[in-house]
Nucleic acid binder design. Structure first.
Length: 132
DNA sequence: GTTGTGACATTAT
DNA sequence: CATAATGCCACAA
């Protein structure tokens, strides 16, 4: 079994001791709400994007955009989810403009044809709720 | 039980 | 357009 290509997950801030404990005990991966969110993210079409709020709604968790963020931070590596297709409201990258994450997200989006100017994508690139 | 934090969103200034 | 104030809610300390 070849080692999977280093995922961006590895670039993220290290999990706290408590979060790591949970992760190791698989409590997070088994959480139904988080799984629902991950499934929605996996359905966002290539070349399009969605937002934290919409992802949460599509997962049956209206008003819980922050939970979508939590789910992304705790993405299981094996799923290879298109994390970079998830933006803040209005289609803005949520990471600080010059941060590594911001640049990487913009790069990946452009790599699939999504225009990114000043950390923002065209409204036309945002998938509608029924698309996800 | 209480307090602080956060890959958010919306509204007001 | 930028920043601040609120609202929000799960999680961690």
């Amino acid at each position: 079994m070849p080692a999977p290509k280093k995922s961006f997950h590895a670039l993220f801030r290290p999990l706290s001791a408590e979060a790591r404990r949970k992760k190791d005990s698989l409590e997070i991966e088994d959480d139904p709400s988080l799984q629902a969110i991950w499934e929605v993210i996996a359905r966002v079409p290539r070349g399009k994007v969605s937002t934290y709020g919409d992802v949460a709604r599509a997962a049956g968790l209206p008003g819980r955009a922050r939970q979508a963020g939590y789910a992304l931070r705790h993405m299981p590596e094996g799923l290879n989810l298109p994390w970079y297709r998830i933006l803040g409201s209005g289609g803005k990258i949520v990471f600080p403009p010059r941060s590594k994450h911001h640049r990487e997200q913009a790069r990946l989006l452009r790599s699939e044809g999504v225009e990114v100017t000043k950390g923002r994508v065209p409204k036309s690139a945002i998938a509608t709720l029924d698309e996800i």
